[in-house]
Nucleic acid binder design. Structure first.
Lengths: 219, 219
DNA sequence: TGGTGGATTTCGATC
DNA sequence: GATCGAAGTCCACCA
């Protein structure tokens, strides 16, 4: 990884045009050819960037980074304050816990959290327009298509609506209804769900993790 | 901006849990207290990060960065390869050109670009599920709900469909129809629009910029 | 290779 | 502070 602190002017043309007037910034060049320009504010987003694969040409104090999509990043170096290169070992992967997949897993283990008498029929139930997260039956034995999200938004309701549109034609299923389950649901998503006759439920991740599974797990 | 190259172990707990085993990485600490951890791959995303505002406590070789939302980033420094600090001037802003807001503005100025006899009723017309970008009338005086996008995709059609779903219940509006306007529209979005009876129109940004406004602007 | 859906999305505007 | 939509979103997965 090469780290350059330099006074520079930056231009990007591609999906839009963006221009940075002269100023002191960090230019980061990674082992895979990625280039990013950082200011001294904001942890996440660089001011400008070019993801790999890139073609980098350097002539005098002008860098031109281009990619096959026709995007171009042009960096004019006015004054270099620092220039350092470091050799990194291959990065060991990042381990994550608590994302949607895990939430779905917990609910599959404890379908009673969705409602009394709920039973899991199967996970990732296929439809013509994609898999439904959880297919359950309620206490009355009617089918319930469950869409699991970390955060429920309007798109989640749309997605579930599409599934239901197709599932209602499935003679195997008995009067299927939809349920959006998330740790948090936006008001507009609730509005739309209501209009579409879709139930919604807020669940607590930590609470779920502490629940007794309806069936003991194998590990 | 402080740049540390170090062999380190990182843990994040907050919206989820994430763990990085020991490895050589870049730790970036910005003037506003933002902290990010970068590997040598990928321009855009840090492996871990904490956006401002943060509380940073350092004891020996362990950094603990916490924020008011209860998130915690813990960095255990095993070996420091490099540690450098730089003073940046205040960042001059990034200028962007060609984004959706600007496109909407141009179309509001020149509604005739949408069709002969088109007139603007208002921008950001509210519905229960969000505001419609432009509400116009066509030459016949019928309402047209216009969704403006840089790039029209399936979601854009879904979004416009939702608006229409609610607008059709509005007695104020006369036989409202929808129109998707973008610099580029995906084939699948055109398909879906056609199926939904929604018109679509490709507009040229530079051409629009050169158009005579239907009403002169005040600046 | 293109489409789809998730993300510690982030970011900005608006209420 | 909450909410909502855009983003040069990025990214992984899968057909």
């Amino acid at each position: 990884m090469r780290l350059i602190i330099a006074r520079c002017v930056v231009h990007y043309t591609g999906r839009l045009s963006a221009h940075l007037p002269e100023g002191l910034r960090l230019i980061m060049v990674k082992a895979d050819g990625c280039v990013s320009v950082h200011s001294d504010v904001g942890a996440y987003k660089p001011l400008n960037w070019m993801n790999a694969p890139n073609n980098i040409t350097v002539s005098d104090d002008v860098w031109e980074i281009s990619n096959p999509k026709g995007e171009l990043l042009r960096i004019e170096l006015k004054e270099i304050v620092s220039d350092a290169d470091f050799e990194f070992d291959r990065h060991p992967g990042l381990q994550k816990d608590g994302v949607e997949a895990h939430l779905q897993e917990l609910l599959a283990d404890s379908p009673q959290a969705l409602g009394e008498g709920f039973k899991l029929i199967r996970r990732e139930h296929p439809t013509q327009v994609g898999p439904v997260d959880l297919l359950c039956t309620d206490a009355q034995g009617n089918s319930v298509a469950v869409e699991v999200k970390r955060r429920g938004e309007i798109d989640s309701v749309e997605q579930l609506s599409r599934y239901l549109e197709f599932m209602k034609d499935d003679p195997q299923l008995k009067s299927v209804r939809g349920m959006l389950v998330a740790q948090e649901i936006r008001p507009q998503a609730k509005e739309l769900a209501k209009k579409r006759g879709i139930d919604w439920l807020i669940v607590d991740y930590d609470e779920l993790r502490g629940m007794e599974p309806s069936k003991p797990r194998l590990f």
